[in-house]
Design a protein around this nucleic acid. Structure first.
Lengths: 240, 240
DNA sequence: CGAAGGGTTGATCAATTTCAATCGCGGTGG
DNA sequence: CCACCGCGATTGAAATTGATCAACCCTTCG
């Protein structure tokens, strides 16, 4: 059974057998979380780095009004904040969406990897840059895309990310997000998400069922989303 | 005349005289940009790291519809993407808002600083973490705050950032952003921004003139914004 | 079987955009 | 010096989008 973190980092830089062994060791004591369980909460002191090995996780923040905004989805292979320990206090929480297996990488393991294994360091920095690009894309979506475009864009993003780690079928892929979770990620209402999804289904672009999405017409979906996969940097600069 | 990059990094980690000299050398050949001039455009190959020494700069993206979304403001002392060269292609542009002086740090200088000067490396990573927190705060704003809250929140953020680098007066501070630029940053219309600013002025919270803002009632402004400066991590973990 | 959490739909309400027009200031050419 | 120009700011009215409120349905699960 492949370690998804190894798989992801291996896609971002060449890893030696020794690199692989180190990564596997560092993530060999995962912990199991149930849906809605917090890995860490706003206000907590930052701990070790998290690496998602299985399931879906999100970063989120609850506002004074009680509404929630999800700022990022983490799927298997994704990690949190390489240098998070530098901060005094978490400004947001991290929570499991599905049942999830999450490893914890100690500070010393991190330091060893970053200092003595340049390939690993490079892969992690690349991963971080991609994460930042995703955040910027979210800002663009929230600011300047209509609700339909926004939903389509997120599905495109998640589809490609899922495909990168081998989680997609041909046209259907597993998406264990309730409409309420999507709403909290996209800054809209669950009611409105529901209507948008209906439109997208009737338009023949995509259909969301419980737990999975079917891309009915990829070209149409990409058009609606105004999606440009450039930002996911699927072809990184492997030289230098 | 202090180098704002030195000043900013010095606020994030202890720097030795040697560290300071290295930073000053690396940023000693700045270039001058005029308002609206691009430092780099979407699709360009990433070049060296930029460091803003004077003036205001933004990251932005133009959508197919022609609308623009600003994703970040950079003020003196702010830098772009430590490891940007790892990416194949820029997924957004960077543009001067005001006349600006921007230094360029070569790849070799970067490598030297990150490898041989751990204090500098630490400061840069901290700066990057703060930048990411700001991005997340923008996502939260765009997703779940009303337009009035959003405007107030951005002004609070910019005020604190400006104060950190000594650019604020007592209650007034220089903010060289047109209402159109604010609109592009906040995902709203210039018309609507204008009305919101009027409301905030009438409410006695803040008043924006050409080129500067006056904070009329800091407490009220923070209340309206639901602002929690925790996310700017003004007190970083200086140990470890 | 009953409760809970999601999903779906309709009617109404509120926030924002869009469209259109006007104003004001700083700079420029005559 | 002054009329003119262009950009940004301002305002009103109409049109749209998305939120809110309120049911009701369906499936899962104890």
């Amino acid at each position: 059974m492949a370690n998804p973190f190894v798989k992801k980092l291996g896609g971002l830089a060449e890893l030696t057998a020794s690199d692989v062994r180190i990564i596997e060791n560092a993530t060999s004591h995962p912990r199991r979380y149930s849906p809605r369980q917090d890995l860490i909460r706003e206000g907590d002191e930052p701990g070790p780095m998290f690496v998602v090995l299985d399931g879906w996780v999100c970063r989120y923040k609850i506002l004074p009004s009680g509404t929630r905004q999800i700022m990022a989805f983490l799927m298997p292979g994704d990690a949190c904040d390489l240098h998070i320990k530098l901060l005094a206090e978490m400004d947001h929480g991290i929570q499991a969406i599905t049942a999830a297996t999450v490893a914890t990488v100690s500070k010393t393991d991190m330091e060893t990897m970053m200092r003595d294994h340049p390939n690993i360091a490079k892969a992690m920095y690349s991963a971080q840059l991609v994460d930042e690009s995703v955040m910027r894309a979210w800002i663009v979506s929230m600011g300047r895309r209509s609700s339909t475009e926004r939903v389509a864009h997120l599905i495109c993003e998640l589809y490609l990310r899922a495909r990168n780690i081998g989680l997609t079928g041909d046209e259907e892929f597993s998406l264990p997000l309730s409409q309420l979770v999507l709403a909290d990620a996209l800054g809209m209402t669950a009611v409105h998400i529901n209507r948008v999804l209906k439109d997208l289904r009737l338009a023949g672009a995509m259909a969301l069922k419980r737990g999975s999405v079917t891309i009915l017409d990829p070209v149409k979906l990409v058009q609606i989303a105004g999606f440009d996969d450039n930002y996911l940097h699927r072809r990184l600069r492997m030289t230098g």
